[in-house]
Simulated assay, not measured.
Amino acid sequence: MAQFLKAEGEIPTERIGKIVLSAHSGGYNVTRAILERGGLGKNITDVLLFDASYGGLEVFADCGAQKNHRLISLFTAHLASENFQLLTLLQKRGATVTSLLEAGLEEKEKTLRARRPVILHTLDLLHDEVLMKRGYFALFLKTGILGYNVQ
């Protein structure tokens, strides 16, 4: 892929750096497929799910349990049981999982910076608001790939 993009003049190098995968809603399926078949696992540092834990939970748990990977699943009430299942799968893989309620999230940057899975329940955001309304996408990037030197 990188060779193709360089040949097309879209990128200046074939070198692939750090990759953050992000999905909202049904985008989980593409993200799951990338993790399963993409061949870029060593480059993927963060997976950010915004009310997107409808399926592929085994794949997300495999990724989130790896050293130097970070999985954040922000969810609304309708995906509570799927996120409980994701938390259980992560724990079965030996991952230390942080489970948070949204209140005061900005004050928990140290927790978000940790290279471990975070399951985060929003108490009042709607499905279509989870990505942008409170700036969580920017916060997760700031506390992730932009603010942490992954080895």
Score class of each variant (00 low, 15 high):
A2S: 15
G17N: 12
S99K: 07
L74E: 01
L5Y: 15
A52N: 06
G144T: 02
A61K: 03
L131W: 08
L90F: 02
L87M: 12
T143A: 11
R70N: 04
Y136R: 03
T88D: 15
Q91W: 02
C63I: 09
R113W: 10
H69A: 04
G56D: 03
I34L: 06
L100N: 04
F50E: 05
H78K: 13
Y28H: 14
D62W: 01
M1Y: 14
R116E: 07
T76F: 03
N43H: 13
R116T: 07
K67H: 11
K142I: 06
S81H: 10
M1V: 14
T76Y: 02
V118H: 03
L123K: 07
G41W: 03
L71I: 01
A52E: 06
D62Y: 01
V150L: 12
V118A: 04
G17R: 10
E129N: 09
F140H: 04
I145R: 10
G27Q: 06
L123I: 07
Y54W: 06
M1N: 14
L49F: 05
I34T: 05
S53N: 02
V118I: 13
G104E: 09
G135M: 07
K92I: 02
K6I: 08
A65Q: 07
A7F: 06
S53F: 01
L105H: 02
V150H: 15
A103G: 05
L139N: 10
S53G: 10
L74F: 02
E102W: 05
F4T: 15
H127L: 02
I19H: 11
L141K: 04
Y28S: 09
R32E: 06
T96W: 07
L146F: 11
Q91S: 06
R134I: 03
K142G: 06
R93C: 07
T122F: 03
I44W: 03
R115H: 07
L123R: 08
H24M: 09
F84C: 04
L21H: 04
R115Y: 05
R15E: 11
N83T: 02
L79R: 10
M1K: 13
P117K: 00
L40H: 09
I34R: 01
G135S: 09
G39D: 10
Q3D: 14
